[in-house]
Design a protein around this nucleic acid. Structure first.
Lengths: 218, 218
DNA sequence: CTTCGGATTTGATCCAGATCAATGCGGCAA
DNA sequence: TTGCCGCATTGATCTGGATCAAATCCGAAG
């Protein structure tokens, strides 16, 4: 099993052993749903491989992607009765799942772990505030550039630093994350490629002019 | 002193006494800045009276209001070195402030409190996800109606249920919260008033047709 | 190799909300 | 009372991104 990144870094060995006992390794095929918005929250998940799309739907079908979970990310940590969003696999995904009961018991018993989870939650909240700025006040080009730099940074923190940013999600997913349409995303990618800011490669994008991109993200 | 709502509900008496020893009651006049984005995070605040505007700025002056803090709300709980947003008083504001050192020491010592804070943070995260949906996918009219219903609900939970929703913030603040311009906010208010969905009163809005509003918020 | 179906790109046109520009409306200081 | 000075409203016009409408591309199945 992939060592649980991010949440477990500060645990003692016995705590880690306990955690691994409770962890149920599971995997999902491309497109599978881990859980749906409003469903009873049985499980908490730690992603160990692959990418998960997190999203909310409006009754008329409008969709907002609230995030993409990468290895190390924690899902369903809002200790509530029902999931606040839906999650499904983009490509094959591996997770460690914990039953809600085991999770809450463990959290009650181990302040270390709770503290780590709280840090994780506040970090998520900070990212959410940045996403609000992006959604409310940035232009289409800025949105896309911020998204690319953000993904690059996240992959880098996972030990995969590269000028080529993998983008396993569809254009529609990106559009729904950035509050745009698929056409605007596509056109903006094309424009950035034409002016040699990026190079579009299969499965992702190569950053060609990081200076310009960082200046736009400001 | 107003009893600390929301965070301290589950504390034992001795814990509460300890907390009150550490709490420094402070107040701010209208327009005063509690703290600025990027500044060293000395203090954590619990709002006890008034309303606080929380916002982020882009270098060119574009502003995104990430929230309005009401009595009971906690500010600066992201245990980090620097504040992630700025906060200033809308009208007179009373808070209990805690030094960062005292706060972290207390949190380390009292798992109860940490658990409450974590619940608070995850609730904030859920609200942030809803705000992303609103910013990314809703129309101007929907944004305004959701905002009004949300504020009404928050005042109600604080023991002030009323069909008249107080709006102490300016139109510009509302616009910057909803990702709109002040003109669009004003026009949309006027339109809703003309069709008798709301009645605009000094300092706020009276909800006249909650059924229609709830249907739009869906 | 060919065919099919979803994803993506590209083009033409439209429109919700932005921008530009007055005007109105208190509240408060002199 | 008068005159500001910030808000807020209203009107006219513009435009970035949405919508509508075809192509293209491409990987998987046969």
């Amino acid at each position: 099993m992939v060592r649980l990144v991010s949440v477990c870094a500060s645990l003692t060995d016995d705590e880690l052993a306990l955690l691994e006992q409770l962890a149920m390794p599971t995997h999902f095929a491309s497109g599978d749903t881990l859980f749906s918005q409003g469903a009873d929250a049985h499980c908490v998940y730690n992603v160990t491989g692959g990418v998960v799309r997190l999203y909310k739907l409006l009754s008329d079908g409008r969709r907002q992607v609230v995030g993409f979970a990468l290895p190390g990310d924690f899902l369903g940590l809002a200790m509530r009765d029902a999931y606040g969003f839906s999650a499904d696999a983009i490509g094959d995904v591996a997770v460690c799942s914990f039953s809600r009961g085991a999770y809450t018991a463990l959290v009650d018993a181990k302040p270390h772990l709770l503290k780590r989870l709280h840090e994780f939650a506040t970090h998520e909240l900070t990212l959410a505030h940045e996403q609000m700025m992006l959604l409310g006040r940035r232009t289409a080009e800025e949105k896309l550039i911020c998204f690319l730099l953000g993904m690059q940074q996240r992959w880098a923190r996972l030990g995969k630093p590269s000028v080529t940013v993998p983008l396993p999600m569809t254009r529609q997913d990106i559009a729904d994350f950035l509050g745009l349409t698929i056409e605007t995303v596509s056109r903006t990618f094309t424009r950035l490629a034409k002016e040699k800011t990026i190079l579009i490669v299969p499965g992702g994008v190569r950053v060609m002019n990081p200076e310009r991109m960082l200046a736009v993200a400001a």
